[in-house]
Computed example of a mutant assay.
Amino acid sequence: MPQIQLNGTSIYYETYGTGVPVVFIHDHLTSHHLFEPQIEYFRDRVQVIVLDLRGNGLSGKMDVEVHRILDTQCEDLKELLRRLELLSVILVASSGGGVLAQKFAVQNPELVRALVLVDNCSSGNDSMKNNRIWGIIERCSWISYYLPPELLLRSLRIAYNKWLPAYHILRNELLHKRPTEGIKQRIALRQIDILAYAVKLQVPVLCVTGSQNEWRLAQASKNASMLPSAQLVVLDDAMYPSHLCQPQHFNRLLLNFLIDQHAVHQRESGL
């Protein structure tokens, strides 16, 4: 398995293809498998890099304090890019992974040429997340992280009845979840004021979300409005993760964005 030791833990990653490097970053409680349809579609068009962030998937333990999680994961990503000898990449990130991607892009502007934020959330310091009652409710919800995954499979199947490819990937992720480290990442994300990073972004940004979840749609719209050079696209008949609910539409959308960024030539795109 392609694993490297860095910053006190092991990081699992996979690479496919050649060309402009595109790095896919998953959300907490998931892994690189979240982008299986994108790996298959883009591996013959660009260089695809997927990884499991520390504390997730096949990578090693978190082994850092909560307030250091995002900084350390950014350091992991930077070191991985250095070892792969990648000088400039496009980042595609899902949900909470988008917070990491924005922070990384601001801290390392020379390494990031564009961002794609899928189902991304807005500032971690909004009034709801600072509300005491909401905080209690959220903490109670963390109990579900420790429930046997088999108890949650039926509700997952019902929720994703219209999107079976998404269900099968999320089912696998649920069966291999790492609850404690997932909660730590949730706490770390709450502590980040993403607005402080969003307003500093100077690269092109594509924001994508689905139409079937009003809360995520509102969050993605809010986040896109913060970004100096962002466009928001809403995928019909999709909810989180929208790139799995409508993989064909998302892949074509991402491909067109890569063409616009001169990462893929029209003649090489397969269109």
Rank of each mutant, 00 (worst) to 15 (best):
C140A: 14
I169W: 05
C207F: 06
T209W: 02
Q212A: 13
C140H: 11
L217H: 02
K177A: 08
R157W: 08
I133R: 10
L195S: 15
L206F: 09
E214P: 05
P228F: 03
D237L: 03
Y240N: 09
I183D: 03
A238S: 00
P247N: 02
A224G: 06
C140T: 09
K129G: 12
Y167R: 14
S229W: 01
L227D: 01
S221P: 00
S141Y: 07
Y146A: 01
V203T: 12
D237Y: 06
M239E: 07
S242T: 02
I183A: 06
A196L: 13
E181P: 04
S123F: 08
V233D: 00
L164N: 13
S225K: 10
E173W: 00
R216Q: 15
K222F: 06
I137P: 00
R178Y: 06
P247M: 04
M226N: 12
E138T: 07
Y145T: 14
E214M: 11
S141W: 01
I183Q: 04
L253M: 05
W215K: 15
N161M: 08
L151A: 09
P148T: 03
Q202W: 05
D236E: 15
M239N: 04
Q219L: 03
I183C: 06
Y240L: 14
N161L: 13
Q185C: 03
K184C: 04
L175E: 14
S221M: 02
R139K: 15
I143V: 15
I158C: 07
Q185H: 04
L254N: 02
I136N: 07
R157N: 12
S221Y: 00
L189M: 11
E181Y: 04
I136M: 14
P149A: 13
E181N: 05
L201T: 14
M239S: 06
E214N: 12
H249I: 09
N130Y: 04
M226W: 13
S127F: 12
S122L: 05
I194N: 05
R132H: 09
N172D: 15
E214Y: 05
L152F: 08
Y167H: 14
L232V: 02
Q231G: 07
E173N: 05
W134V: 10
D126P: 02
L235S: 00
L170S: 02
N161S: 13
S211G: 09
I136W: 11
D236M: 09
V234L: 01
A218K: 13
L232D: 00
L195E: 15
I187F: 04
Y145K: 14
L174C: 08
N130F: 02
Y146F: 15
E181W: 05
P204R: 07
H249F: 07
Q191T: 09
L164F: 12
I183L: 06
L254H: 04
Q191C: 08
V233I: 15
P149F: 11
I158K: 11
I143P: 01
I143M: 14
